[in-house]
Design a protein around this nucleic acid. Structure first.
Length: 648
RNA sequence: GCCGGGGUAGCUCAGGGGUAGAGCAACGCACUCGUAAUGCGUAGGUCGCGGGUUCAAAUCCCGCCUCCGGCUCCA
């Protein structure tokens, strides 16, 4: 019997009903055949050697694509599990998917894996790869599978689970066998273990079964696998580059901030240079908000428990709040509980409520660089990226529902402008819609979701829908940026809130002198200033755009006798608004230059005899290894003034 | 919080029951130098904190703090 195979280019080929993806790939070309790791048949992933027995559209998955690497990594996970089960008698295995950049597998073992164990496992994996064992697919009924995996309780749970997605489809499950190792798996897999060309185990860690702390903790091993040794090396180099850019390391090298253990976990102090950087960021934020119709407000760090009860935080957010402090306790009576603020919104609401509001003053945009404190569990703290006290560029917009669409559009334009000004130009957005538990009118929700979507479309921002992921009080947009290493960070968030205006009974007077309830929008552009600066440091690898650099220019005198001239130039630059250092250290030019380069100073001015005589300087810009000699000092100053100008 | 690995000079790290080590940084002296490390010298440590074992603890044991990698959550 003959079947018709349709290829992605629309062409058709005739085959026997027992053909395989490998056969088809080979007919197209030998190079494709050797790069192929699997195929899709009418969109469904198939092993290369799994027979295709019907008319279908087939496309070949090659090893150098994300889909291809997914297959490679999934097979690598199997081979690792096989090695672990070989080496650790009594071990049982749970789940082992491919993930971004690699794979992991979770095991239940008698003792946690030690670093040396990973080497042994890697060696065993290499043997399995060398043996080039074919992966063989077969299908079992649920009953057969339960019997087959009776010794592996986590597999049994997966087989029984209706929602589980690991190889479960209808009445049967598929398994893959290579040599003596059998795993429950949906596939597809590489044709054989020998096709795993480049892999490395990365680390072991504890992980809860299904990510739930109430479940037993398993031992997870992370690995990475690639289509070639070169691709693996590139990835390892990227990790190396990332660790060189680590904001915690650069924080020390560039003297920006530190995390003294005397302070406590998750708390940072800002050194003068970090303080300067942070002030540049915050000044920019204040300036641009003022220019975009925001009014600056300020609020204290504490408020009475009553306020947090009205706002719902005590009910919904208490886990992340610091415990209450009882103040003003009299000699017999009970005092008043106060909470440190985890959010700024209730304060801004109180400002709104301070007097009656008219439709004429809406949208009212209240802005604050508000420092909030959230209790984060000790294990999750991470440099500036995850701290226990941080400052949000926070704003609450009070608007009529009629103005909401326009306001969201303006807001999104503003967000993108700000992120671009800091050097980010790749964005992705998530639109999170109404969850099962929600407050407010469903029609209003739908309208707000539509406004958010249309704002995204008008801004030409690609976005993913996250159905049901909105907060209970309103839908939201989250904006992610991609940094210089291609990593994705969530920065901005725009959240519509139907709940708080209700909680606080907010109103405004309409043009007909009736009372209506405003809609609130919570939004933060940089998110947390601390975290944002951590991301900036890593994105720019510490070589900040000149307007953000703590030191924008360093003046290097060639010898002692040029110190006076160098200092005079420094004074001129300070007057012109440039952040400058004059390096009069008793060192060679080479050493002083090296220090300034290591500190990633945007501009270095070297001055010697010729410069003193001619009122010039040698100018060496960051990233260039050729300098300009004898530049007239007036031009140097004018150029630097231009260089350090903020984007707006 | 849980699992694993760490904490020795400002930084990066070696050492491992019996007088605490290196490189860089710092400080001093000499050198006065034209685009990525001048030379010589000096100083610097309750070996994270507390308790225990021991004639003796940085080293072994216990507890705590803190950092790193994960789990979970999010700015």
């Amino acid at each position: 019997m003959s079947i018709t195979i349709t290829l992605p280019d629309g062409s058709n080929r005739q085959y026997d009903a027992s053909t395989t993806g490998y056969q088809i790939a080979s007919d197209i070309g030998p190079r494709l055949a050797s790069a192929a790791v699997a195929v899709t048949v009418d969109g469904e992933p198939y092993d290369l050697h799994r027979p295709i027995d019907r008319n279908a559209s087939v496309s070949v998955i090659t090893e150098n694509t994300e889909a291809g690497r997914h297959v490679i990594r999934h097979s690598a996970a199997h081979i690792m599990a096989q090695a672990v089960l070989d080496l650790f008698p009594g071990a049982t295995f749970a789940i082992g998917p491919a993930i971004d950049d690699g794979f992991y597998y979770d095991f239940s073992v008698e003792r946690p894996f030690a670093p040396d164990d990973l080497n042994a496992i890697e060696d065993r994996m290499a043997e399995i790869v060398a043996a080039d064992q074919p992966f063989e697919r077969s299908e079992l009924s649920i009953a057969e599978a339960l019997e087959t995996f009776a010794d592996h309780p986590f597999k049994v749970e997966i087989i029984k689970g209706v929602d589980a997605d690991e190889g479960v489809a209808g009445d049967t499950v598929s398994t893959y066998r290579n040599d003596g190792f059998l795993d429950l798996c949906r596939g597809p897999h590489l044709p054989s273990t020998g096709r795993l060309k480049a892999f490395q185990l990365m680390r072991a860690a504890g992980a809860y079964w299904r990510g739930n702390e109430d479940n037993p903790q398993l031992q997870r091993i992370y690995g990475t696998a690639w289509e070639s040794k070169k691709a693996l090396d590139d990835y390892l180099n990227m990790l190396e580059e990332a660790s060189k850019r680590d904001h915690r390391r650069l924080g020390v090298d560039l003297d920006l901030y530190s995390f003294p253990s005397e302070l406590g976990a998750g708390l940072a102090v800002w050194h003068p240079k970090g303080g300067t950087l942070r002030r540049a960021v915050e000044d920019y934020s204040r300036r641009t908000h003022a220019a975009h119709g925001y009014e600056h407000v300020m609020s204290p760090h504490l408020a009475k428990a009553d306020l947090w009860e009205t706002s719902g935080h005590v009910n919904f957010y208490r886990d992340a709040m610091y415990p209450a402090m009882e103040l003003d306790r009299g000699s017999h009576g009970k005092g008043q509980d106060y909470f440190v603020k985890p959010m700024n919104c209730p304060f801004h609401i109180l400002i709104y409520k301070a007097r009656s509001r008219s439709y004429r003053e809406l949208p009212l945009r209240l802005f604050e660089l508000g420092t909030v404190y959230r209790y984060e569990r000790s294990g999750v703290l991470h440099g500036l990226m995850r701290v226990r006290g941080f400052t949000q560029d926070d704003s609450h917009i009070f608007t009529t529902e009629e103005d909401l669409a326009d306001e969201l559009q303006r807001l999104l334009d503003f967000v993108l402008m700000v992120l671009r000004d800091f050097g980010f130009d790749e964005f992705e957005a998530d639109l999170s819609t109404r969850p099962e538990k929600y407050v407010g009118d469903p029609d209003m929700w739908e309208r707000a979701e539509a406004y958010l979507a249309s704002a995204l479309e008008t801004a030409d921002l690609s976005y993913q829908l996250a159905p049901g992921e909105g907060a209970f009080y309103g839908p939201k947009i989250d904006i992610h940026i991609k940094d210089a290493l291609g990593r994705r960070w969530q920065l901005s968030t725009i959240q519509v809130d139907f709940g708080q205006p209700e909680n606080f009974e907010l109103e405004y007077a309409t043009n007909e002198n009736t009372r209506k309830r405003p809609v609130m929008v919570h939004r933060a552009l940089l998110g947390s200033v601390e975290r944002f600066i951590g991301i900036l440091v890593e994105h720019h690898a510490g070589a900040f755009p000149a307007w953000l650099s703590p030191v924008q220019a360093t003046v290097v005198p060639v010898a002692d006798r040029h110190n006076e001239y160098a200092t005079a130039i420094g004074d001129r630059l300070v007057e012109a608004g440039v952040r400058v250092e004059v390096d009069t250290a008793d060192e060679t030019v080479g050493e002083k230059l090296r220090n300034a380069i290591t500190q990633k100073t945007p501009a270095i001015l070297v001055v010697g005899d010729n410069d003193v005589e001619n009122k010039t300087a040698g100018v060496r810009m960051r990233g260039e290894d050729k300098e300009a000699r004898g530049v007239p000092i007036e031009k140097v100053i004018a150029d630097l003034v231009e260089l350090v100008a903020p984007p707006r």
